[in-house]
Simulated scan of single mutants.
Amino acid sequence: MNTNQLVQRLREQLRQLEQEVLQHDASLPAAQRKLLQDTERFNSELFIQHGAQLYPCVEQLHKSIDQLEKQLRHQLAQHTIALSCERIQDRFVALKRALGTTGLNARVQKLQQASKRRSYQQRQGRRHQESGFGWIAAGVMQNSHQLYEELNKHLNWAKKIEQKIEQLQSKLENCHSTDKIPVQNDILLMHRRLGKCRQAISYIEDRIQAFERPHQSYNR
């Protein structure tokens, strides 16, 4: 086979493969596009490509064959030409394999994301238990809606405690001196409860921010 026949044969193989790639990219489910949008499916020495669509690889193969044709035309060393041919062959094999493994890659990515979510939730659960707020149900820490409900609950508690403190302050001003100590003790108790409630509010607000940051990236 002469050099012209070699190049023509490679171009014909690429035309056939290009049709398969176009069909593959056109029929990609939206879920697979989303799962693989940031995934590198090839060694960078073969292709520079991200995501489920494979047509960028076809364009790079076109350039490789063009480069080989120039090498042949300029009669470069046989070793150089042989390396180019091997690289082109490796690229053909990798691209053909990728056509059949998109679904598998998507499933692997889905499992990896699920594993990351579980690890995140477990870390949050441990931090929750170590925070001193274990009396807030751990399950609440893993659900955005429940977090907001818990926050609203504590905000209402804080408001009621503040109102109770105001009532006790008014009572303290008007009560007999012999009754002041019990009222002062009640005020001190309410302030302690209010402090704990405010700490819980801050803690829940922090958990909402920590919960939503990773989920924003998962749900892009």
Score class of each variant (00 low, 15 high):
residue 6 L to C: 04
residue 9 R to T: 11
residue 15 R to Y: 02
residue 23 Q to I: 01
residue 26 A to Y: 03
residue 26 A to E: 11
residue 27 S to Q: 14
residue 28 L to I: 05
residue 32 Q to Y: 02
residue 36 L to W: 05
residue 39 T to C: 04
residue 40 E to M: 09
residue 42 F to W: 13
residue 42 F to G: 07
residue 42 F to M: 09
residue 47 F to Q: 09
residue 52 A to F: 04
residue 54 L to H: 09
residue 55 Y to C: 05
residue 60 Q to F: 08
residue 63 K to A: 07
residue 63 K to T: 12
residue 63 K to R: 09
residue 66 D to H: 06
residue 68 L to K: 02
residue 71 Q to M: 07
residue 71 Q to L: 04
residue 74 H to P: 00
residue 75 Q to H: 14
residue 79 H to M: 07
residue 81 I to K: 05
residue 81 I to L: 06
residue 84 S to C: 00
residue 88 I to M: 01
residue 88 I to T: 00
residue 90 D to G: 02
residue 91 R to H: 10
residue 98 A to L: 13
residue 104 L to Y: 08
residue 109 Q to K: 15
residue 109 Q to R: 13
residue 112 Q to N: 02
residue 115 S to I: 06
residue 116 K to N: 12
residue 124 Q to Y: 01
residue 130 E to Q: 15
residue 138 A to R: 08
residue 140 V to C: 05
residue 142 Q to K: 12
residue 143 N to D: 15
residue 145 H to T: 07
residue 148 Y to M: 03
residue 148 Y to A: 01
residue 149 E to R: 08
residue 149 E to H: 01
residue 150 E to G: 00
residue 152 N to A: 15
residue 156 N to G: 08
residue 157 W to F: 11
residue 159 K to A: 14
residue 160 K to C: 04
residue 161 I to T: 08
residue 162 E to P: 00
residue 162 E to L: 04
residue 163 Q to F: 08
residue 167 Q to L: 12
residue 168 L to K: 08
residue 168 L to C: 02
residue 169 Q to M: 06
residue 173 E to T: 11
residue 176 H to Y: 12
residue 181 I to V: 04
residue 197 C to Q: 10
residue 198 R to T: 07
residue 200 A to D: 03
residue 202 S to G: 05
residue 204 I to L: 09
residue 206 D to G: 10
residue 207 R to E: 15
residue 211 F to H: 14
residue 212 E to P: 01
residue 215 H to D: 13
residue 216 Q to V: 12
residue 219 N to S: 14
